[in-house]
């Protein structure tokens, strides 16, 4: 029995090491004194300071955050509508097609989506004279795939939603719209928040699609990192990676806590 437990523990340790050792190394080396990424020369925060004086990098980060906020919010609104239609409208013309189209961007190669969106924006630029490639086009691009994730989260939550709650609201005199605002929406909030966080994270680190739809002037954080790495890895990248990991991890934890809390609430009923 003990031998088996030890074996299981070893396997687990190797698995975690495989996944997280590189990240741990990146975090450790962000505090490295040396200019060389692979040589440890003592503890220092000089690369952290350097990064916070790196204008280009900070601009890219700010753009990424703005795109993340805008695209996450937009995909939450649209994803809510799509998820609601999928969960609540049992039959409408083209329902099956609609259901597959909503989730298609999750499995579609990003290169394909990138090219098609690029063609779309080039075409609309020629025909309508806009939109200029940059913040707006990147945001639209990100919404196309993160919408799917929100829609699925909302649909799943609505699938096990107790509909007598909505009936009770209507029975007490609420119109269908008031019922949605006062009962359905509050109970969907945890799902919407975790959908929003997911969309935000996806937007923040997307590189492939972004490269197609970004103009010459705009550079998001992943694009900036990618291009600077091609010129040789600077320890500032380690610092940046550490920050990104910290943000992603807190988003993940927040989403897990929210989901857990709503599950507990339902279990307690």
């Amino acid at each position: 029995m003990i031998g088996r437990a030890r074996f299981a523990f070893t396997v687990l340790a190797f698995g975690y090491a495989f996944l997280y050792l590189p990240i741990a190394l990146v975090i450790t080396y962000s505090f490295n004194e040396s200019r060389l990424v692979t040589v440890w020369a003592g503890l220092s925060t000089k690369w952290w300071i350097a990064l916070f004086h790196n204008e280009a990098m900070l601009d890219a980060a700010w753009l990424s955050v703005r795109i993340g906020l805008a695209s996450a919010t937009l995909s939450t609104v649209l994803g809510l509508a799509a998820g609601y239609a999928l969960a609540r409208v049992p039959r409408f013309v083209g329902r099956t097609l609609f259901a597959s189209l909503v989730v298609a961007p999750m499995v579609m190669p990003e290169v394909v989506m990138g090219i098609s969106m690029l063609l779309l924006f080039v075409g609309s630029d020629q025909l309508l004279g806009g939109p200029a490639r940059g913040f707006l086009t990147i945001t639209i691009g990100h919404v196309t795939f993160s919408l799917a994730f929100v829609a699925i989260v909302v649909q799943a939550r609505l699938a096990d939603f107790d509909r007598t709650l909505e009936e009770a609201a209507m029975d007490l005199g609420a119109t269908p719209w008031t019922t949605f605002l006062t009962v359905t929406l509050p109970l969907l909030t945890p799902a919407l928040v975790s959908g929003w966080l997911l969309a935000f994270t996806l937007s923040l680190d997307d590189l492939i699609l972004t490269q197609f739809v970004a103009g010459a002037q705009s550079q998001t954080l992943p694009m900036r990192v990618y291009s600077s790495v091609r010129l040789g890895v600077d320890p500032q990248i380690n610092v940046l990676a550490t920050i990104v990991v910290a943000i992603a991890a807190s988003a993940l934890i927040a989403s897990a806590v929210l989901t857990r809390r709503s599950v507990d609430k339902r279990a307690a009923q």
Partner: peptide
């Protein structure tokens, strides 16, 4: 429709709103 009928119903599952407290549930209507 139900919201325009002078009738109220008590549901078998009670259908209490989990996001509202007792007073909020009662005040809803």
């Amino acid at each position: 429709p139900p919201h325009k009928r002078p009738v109220n119903m008590m549901f078998q599952s009670y259908a209490l709103f989990p996001h509202l407290d007792v007073a909020g549930n009662i005040a809803y209507g």
